[in-house]
């Protein structure tokens, strides 16, 4: 009874050039009475962008975590570059972690307060085995990353406490970009930020994705943020994808009543 994707829905058969995909994925948390995800198919192609939207409990963050390889689906599978994700093999796992990076909602808790910004950004390079040979090269790399997110290179020497929420989110993005990933999965990356900062981070993500040919998977309860950033959208409700397709098409003429309700409920400026 999986809800049919809309006519515009792009299911993810193995033949599609998907970079990262969930195929008939279900997930049940340990000791939970029911599946939080049921038969979910989503995919993102190289350089493409996919928004996962829905309300609390819809399963969108769980789906993001499955795509990140943080949990293993109860049924179905995650495909990366067309191959089933293998987390048991160390080198395959490290290669996957380098390729698929994440940014979380709360920049106040996602950065270690006792690490300088430079160390935080260099940390994935070290732990994922892509660190530059010399400290000098590493510093240059961190500086370049900071500049790519609109911060001065000398921010590296300071601690997160010296930065505002928006600046911290820029730092978290720089850290995610450090291993030069192919996919960036961002879970509510602007929800904790003030409105005027929100738009800046949205613009930054769009520019970075375009400049680097990044694939973007964006989890958000805010349809306007998804509309601003993603060409495709999947609407989740009670663990199922009720509708997916091109964002402008879905938002303009939603096929599913739940999607319509979601769109109608957004408060608008008069």
């Amino acid at each position: 009874m999986s809800a049919p994707a809309s006519a515009f829905g792009a299911p993810a058969p193995a033949s599609a050039p998907a970079l990262l995909a969930a195929e008939s994925v279900s997930y049940r948390y340990r000791r939970a009475g029911h599946d939080v995800l049921v038969g979910v198919d989503v995919a993102v192609g190289p350089g493409a962008s996919l928004g996962l939207v829905g309300e609390s409990g819809a399963g969108k963050s769980t789906l993001a975590q499955l795509l990140l390889g943080l949990h293993v689906p109860t049924a179905g599978r995650i495909l990366f570059r067309g191959e089933p994700l293998r987390l048991d093999d160390r080198s395959a796992r490290l290669a996957f972690r380098r390729s698929v990076q994440t940014v979380f909602q709360d920049p106040y808790s996602s950065l270690d307060p006792r690490m300088t910004v430079g160390r935080s950004i260099a940390e994935p390079l070290v732990s994922l085995g892509t660190a530059q040979r010399s400290a000098e090269d590493r510093r240059a790399r961190v500086g370049a990353l900071l500049e790519s997110v609109g911060l001065p290179a000398d921010a590296a020497t300071r601690y997160p406490s010296a930065f505002s929420g928006g600046q911290r989110q820029r730092i978290a993005i720089a850290r995610a970009l450090a291993p030069d990933p192919a996919v960036l999965i961002a879970d509510e990356p602007v929800s904790a930020l003030d409105m005027s900062v929100r738009i800046q981070i949205v613009d930054l993500l769009r520019d970075l994705a375009a400049a680097r040919g990044l694939s973007l998977v964006l989890v958000s309860h805010d349809l306007s943020v998804v509309a601003a950033l993603c060409e495709n959208i999947a609407v989740l409700h009670d663990g199922r994808v009720v509708e997916q397709g091109a964002t402008d098409v879905v938002l303009r003429s939603p096929a599913d009543p739940y999607t319509r309700r979601l769109i109608d409920a957004i408060p608008r400026l008069p």
Binding site: A227, L251, I266
Partner: peptide, 8 residues
Amino acid sequence: RALEAHLP
């Protein structure tokens, strides 16, 4: 308004 402009 800029964010809302992305919505239909």
